[in-house]
């Protein structure tokens, strides 16, 4: 699987630097996991971070190394102990709770991805084959990674692994693939998030 649409360099740099909101970062991570070329770029940008570390002016430590005798070695931190991933779900979702799929219209369902304290709202959206989603616009960012199937809008066709990086300047009229349908994970920011087609679908179900 190789993506056609990828995050911009600036977005990936902000991801590597740990500057993105956790919800937005998670959607980027879903793409990176699925796309070898973005993984490659991620490693390049991590190397930039390494180079900056080497170039950093040292600041003297107030105290020397802690006593490491008691620290133990060789094990991963328990925090990263994975819960069993749900089949077909991106691995990067392992640390997060997922709500149940809920139908929000004819052939459209959503499930929440619980990212506590993220500014962006994160959810998965599943639309059946051939659904035409009404014209919509939003005030903040709307980033999506396609998990399966595809949709198509003014900016091209977005299939599994693709990353759709839209801001408020974009106006969408997505058409879901007539055969495969589409499942994607979406993060949205902004104050007037729930306008347009998603708003009408989600408003009764999602309380801000």
């Amino acid at each position: 699987m190789s993506a056609v649409h990828r995050p911009s360099d600036e977005t990936l740099a902000a991801f590597v630097a740990g500057q993105l909101d956790e919800g937005l970062a998670l959607v980027v991570a879903c793409h990176v996991e699925a796309d070898p070329a973005s993984r490659q770029r991620l490693r390049d940008l991590q190397a930039v971070q390494g180079a900056l570390l080497d170039a950093a002016d040292p600041v003297a430590m107030a105290s020397g190394p802690r006593d490491v005798r008691a620290a133990g070695q060789g094990s991963r931190s328990p925090a990263s102990a994975p819960s069993a991933p749900e089949a077909g779900m991106p691995q990067v979702l392992r640390p997060y709770g997922l709500g149940p799929w809920r139908s929000i219209g004819i052939k459209v369902a959503m499930r929440r991805v619980v990212v506590p304290d993220a500014e962006a709202r994160v959810f998965m959206l599943r639309a059946g084959p051939g659904i035409a989603l009404p014209h919509h616009k939003h005030s903040g960012l709307e980033w999506a990674t396609i998990l399966s199937g595809a949709y198509e809008h003014e900016y091209g066709r977005y299939a599994a692994g693709d990353f759709d990086e839209a801001d408020s300047s974009h106006v969408h009229t997505p058409r879901v693939d007539p055969v495969e349908g589409c499942t994607c994970i979406v993060a949205m920011t902004g104050n007037v998030l729930f306008q347009g087609w998603l708003g009408r679908l989600l408003q009764p179900l999602v309380r801000l």
Binding site: A25, L26, V32, E33, R39, L42, P82, V92, R94, D117
Partner: peptide, 13 residues
């Protein structure tokens, strides 16, 4: 304070 799990996401990647 905010229960971020982002570092786990980086580790998984």
């Amino acid at each position: 304070e905010t229960r971020s799990r982002l570092s786990q996401v980086y580790e998984i990647l």
